[in-house]
Amino acid sequence: MSQQEARPGLLQINGRAAPALQLLGLVASALGLGLALAGILGAGAPLAIAGLALLGIGLPALAGASALQRQVDTPVTGWRGPGPVATFFATLPWVVLAPVVLVIATAPFGGFDRLDPAIATLLQVLVGSLATAAVIGLTVVGSGAATWRDLVSATPAAAAPTLPPPDRRGGLLGDLAWGLAIPIPVLAGASIVASFLVSSSGAVPPSPLPPAGNLLQLCANLITAGLIAPIGEELLYRGVIAQAWGRQSGPRRAIIFSTLLFAFAHTLNLGGTTISEGLLIAIVAFAIRLPLGLALGWLWVRRRSLVATIMLHAVYNIAIVLISS
């Protein structure tokens, strides 16, 4: 960075003139983070919600700004969307806020509390998934980094020199076949990991779904776990995050980092009565998601198709819902 370069005015980031979007993102994110932290520290839940909402504006703005920057300085074959971690965090506030949105939305109809817990969870996951899709639509598709088709299946535009050519044998049917075949070994592996961890640590992470007492609840749970969650999560973790890392660096990073973020996201809504108990539960919850995450990442690299990974994810989730009920 040369000293001779003319210093731009107040609106600068890292010494260069900042696009308004980036500045907005930075200020909104920092304010939102501050408010959210203050709320968590005890200044009150409304502040925390306001902070999250601000973060929900600021972080997508930052992600969008970063995508615009990459449009300029990244080759076409590389990843020109927002960074994978940025995308992940940009979707997070609204996923966390989904219940609040629902509480507000259902207030005229008697309130969120009166809903069946299974339906409530379904709606919550639905809102979270829609929010995720919206953020991806704004920051990835909207910035022109990729089209929806690029995210869903291996279009020629999504071909990258850093990734091996996809195995597209069998086409869509092949995707479905892979998705049906892999869950069995993955389930076996995951159950071994889970039983070892649960027995050695004593911490049992609670299921993200409410227990199904009747057929309606079971159906709702099946729709949540077998349809909505897989679509929303695959769009984010494989469609954008694995793709971004794959096109930036290569398949190994794509698999590993998308798995880590995937597992990490599943620890966020957990807690314990003490800090150490909460930590232990979170670690267990993290670890038991790793086998599935790795399998999904590997399958995506191989097939480069969200159809395959959604199928795998759905079959895996449905199996777990059925087993546990």
Binding site: Q12, I13, N14, A18, L26, S29, A30, G34, L41, L47
Partner: peptide, 19 residues
């Protein structure tokens, strides 16, 4: 509390962006 927390967030932001 809010000011201190926002200051913390801006501080990290400032470290990353030099703004």
């Amino acid at each position: 509390t809010v000011f201190a927390a926002i200051a913390a967030a801006f501080l990290v932001g400032a470290a990353l962006t030099r703004t």
